[in-house]
Design a protein around this nucleic acid. Structure first.
Length: 257
DNA sequence: ATGGTTGTTGCACAA
């Protein structure tokens, strides 16, 4: 069972590429972020024609997350299930696919450490733990996958300037990843790769992809039972090439049945 | 160099 995360940067603009990729790879579960569309615009029938069931949580112009699956899609929860006031932005959707509780997350970018959006990012990550606590259990098969907008370690970043006061690499952000680890979630990709220079996002500007200037910010986190089943993980860099790509590549994990 | 590029119910703003 392969579970994929892909920030598509507009599902409308990316639908031809996404369709082509699905037909080639046929993943069991595909989690999307930054669909940038309202629920009414989500092309559910299109995915059904490809053999997938889809669930989407969107708001229109910004954000938007989805899960599409060809191994079942049950108990869908849009937004946080932490029982307090709903988050105003569409950044998390959760469903059970073939016994795995899967969340597709689009963590706030943060913009700059002195921007209010950075505090929103940290609060959002605190709420993610509260959500998991309410929605499921560390002893269950759980995968939280998506664009975390955090590089877990310095080995996951090209730009040294980013390490000096930039977002995505601050101790406070990494503390939130540590809190998720304390809850029971480990970085499945790092269970199979130790090298640096392995990224999932490259800025559109300045020929960053061509120069190898990127960050690994698209993560798949799994509970212990999932980590034990994880056979491999890979970034499909080919999907970042060619005409009209997203600035993110898909990241795949395969779990043994 | 506060640079560069892409997307959107765009003409500014988020990434």
């Amino acid at each position: 069972m392969r579970i994929v995360t892909w920030n598509v940067n507009s599902l409308k603009a990316r639908l031809p590429r996404v369709t082509e990729w699905i037909e080639e790879v046929r993943p069991e579960v595909l989690c999307l972020q930054e669909t940038k569309m309202a629920d009414e615009a989500f092309p559910a029938l299109h995915f059904e024609e490809l053999g997938y069931t889809g669930a989407h949580f969107g708001q229109g112009r910004w954000n938007g997350v989805a899960i599409i699956s060809r191994v079942g899609l049950d108990d869908v929860v849009a937004n946080f299930a932490d029982g307090i006031e709903p988050d105003t932005e569409a950044r998390i959707i959760t469903a059970t696919c073939a016994g795995v509780r899967v969340s597709s997350v689009y963590v706030p970018n943060g913009r700059a450490v002195d921007d209010p959006h950075y505090e929103y990012k940290l609060d959002w990550l605190d709420r993610l733990v509260a959500h998991l606590e309410r929605d499921t259990s560390p002893s269950a098969d759980v995968v939280v996958t998506g664009d975390f907008n955090i590089a877990p370690t310095d080995a996951d970043v090209f730009d040294p300037a980013m390490l000096d006061g930039g977002t995505h690499v601050t101790p406070a952000e990494r503390d939130r990843l540590a809190a998720l680890a304390d809850w029971g979630l480990t970085d499945l990709f790092r269970g199979h790769h130790t090298a640096d220079g392995l990224y999932s996002w490259w800025d559109y500007r300045s020929g960053s992809f061509h120069k190898g200037h990127g960050m690994r910010i698209d993560l798949s986190l799994g509970t212990a039972s999932v980590a034990k089943r994880c056979r491999w993980s890979v970034v499909d860099r080919n999907a970042r090439k060619g005409e009209s790509p997203s600035d993110h590549a898909p990241v795949i994990v395969e779990l043994a049945d």
